[in-house]
Amino acid sequence: MFHRPRLPQLLSGALLGLLASGVHAAATTPAPDALQPLLATINERLNIADQVALTKWDSGKPIQDTARETLVIANAKKQANERKLNPDEAAELVAAQIEANKLVQYGLIAQWQAAHKAPDVPRPDLNQLRPKLDELQVRLLQQYADFTPYRVDPDCPNWLAEQRSSLIKDTLHGQALIRATGELCVTDQ
């Protein structure tokens, strides 16, 4: 059973807690140039979730598409080898993007169900969106490869919190962006 009123409260609380923790910890070194393009691509992919949600609202298709997700993750593993990335880490990165995308879709569809309507905006066909998502994955993995040497830097979580906060447009997308970037930094914590 879906309890819609709690979702915004949970998302707001989690987002505020994570943002607040980033405010107190200032990075001692500047963020590497490789972080901003990576976050921009992650955010661009995440914003496509709004359009995907609209297509699924109209078609009645479920948000969960295990066959497509399996294919996307398998492709990421293949592409990882071309970029000298650990295939399992690339798969984890792409899986996080998928989960974040679904978080937005579930949140938006829940809002639309409560309102008994979706926004009256043009809707692309899902088959038009998938090539864009595939192109973004190629860019994402290259940018991830560029950022990989910085993942273990002790300042990585602070860089991430600082740069991610400028991309957050609302609570739902903010929570999804946090999910999408959750494993970018490798810490001993």
Rank of each mutant, 00 (worst) to 15 (best):
D153G: 02
D188E: 14
L38Q: 01
I73P: 07
L126K: 12
N81S: 13
R130P: 06
E82Q: 11
L18V: 07
K102R: 15
A90V: 05
A145Q: 05
R6P: 02
Q189S: 15
Q79D: 14
L177V: 04
S166Q: 15
P154Y: 09
D50Q: 15
T187G: 04
C156A: 15
L39C: 02
P131A: 03
R123Y: 01
I178E: 08
L126I: 14
L39M: 00
Q51I: 03
K169Y: 01
E89C: 03
S59H: 06
E92N: 09
A40P: 01
G13V: 00
I109Q: 11
R4V: 06
L16R: 09
E82S: 12
E92A: 15
Y150L: 08
K169W: 04
W112T: 01
K102M: 13
C156W: 00
A180T: 04
P32G: 02
I42E: 09
K56W: 06
N43D: 13
H116I: 06
A161E: 04
W57Q: 08
T28V: 08
T28L: 14
L85A: 05
E82L: 12
A90F: 01
V104N: 08
D120K: 11
R68C: 12
G60I: 00
L136H: 13
I63V: 15
G174P: 12
D125M: 07
Q9Y: 03
L54T: 05
K169Q: 13
N43S: 14
G107R: 01
F2R: 13
I42C: 08
L11D: 09
V72Q: 13
L93S: 10
L15E: 02
A110C: 03
L35H: 04
I63P: 01
V104I: 15
L11Q: 09
A145Y: 05
E89I: 07
A80D: 03
E135L: 12
E183G: 14
R6I: 10
N75M: 09
P157G: 07
S12C: 02
T55G: 04
G174F: 11
D125R: 15
A25S: 12
N101S: 15
Q105K: 00
D58C: 02
A14W: 05
A161Y: 01
D58E: 12
L129C: 00
D88N: 10
A40C: 06
Q128M: 11
L71P: 04
L141R: 01
A161H: 11
E183C: 07
G60Q: 01
L46H: 09
A118K: 11
G107E: 00
H24V: 14
R139Y: 05
K56L: 10
S59Q: 11
I98N: 06
L133C: 06
N75K: 13
Q175Y: 12
Q36S: 10
Q113W: 05
G174Y: 11
L133P: 02
V138K: 12
K61Y: 01
A180E: 07
K61N: 09
P32F: 05
D146L: 08
P124L: 08
R151H: 00
I48Y: 11
L129N: 05
E89W: 06
W112F: 04
A100F: 03
Q97W: 08
V94I: 12
Y144P: 01
N81W: 10
A100P: 08
L140H: 04
